[in-house]
Amino acid sequence: MLTKEQIAQRIAQEMEDGYYVNLGIGIPTLVANYIPEGISVEFQSENGILGMGPFPFEGEEDADLINAGKQTITAQPGAAFFNSSTSFAMIRGQHVQMTVLGAMEVAQNGDIANWKIPGKMVKGMGGAMDLVASAENIIVAMMHTNKKGDSKLLTKCTLPLTGVNCVKKIVTNLAVLEVKDNAFHLMERAPGVGVEEIQAATEGKLIVDGDVPEMKL
């Protein structure tokens, strides 16, 4: 079973040289720590920066330089700042090549729910609806089941949707799955995790085609 850091590490393997990448809050943020050797990518944060760097050294925090999680950050050499409309032009216009975000539920048709739980305080969707509506390459980083142990990979989402038919790939603590043809396709297993365990944790339709390899980290 993967840790959150290992989920991030596995997702980082999906990055290709020259990619512009938008990382969501939570596990997706960790992906920046595992960029493969020899690959150059730039991180976009939707509040208006391309070329986001690591957190600043203590004492060098700048209130005018934050990411979409409102954390203080730095700008890499070659970074650019822009307004929110330009930022979402990059996203909706599919100039950003990869989007990684968390989810509360994903359905086998690619629907995603990650912004609202009825009866609980509604904080808002932020940029998530714009991101999932347009990105070609959306990877969901999440645990396979919720805290109660219920599957987050469902036949149909039960929570209010963030977007429809948009998730292409999911990396969980148990597996790598592709979402297509109205099913979850098991591509890789986490080290030491069997197909039965993944099947048991997946409420939606799971396709297992032949021997499923263990993922390499």
Binding site: F55, P56, E58, E60, I66, K70, T72
Partner: peptide, 8 residues
């Protein structure tokens, strides 16, 4: 600053 995040 809402979330003061730094590295050592």
């Amino acid at each position: 600053i809402e979330q003061r995040t730094v590295r050592q």
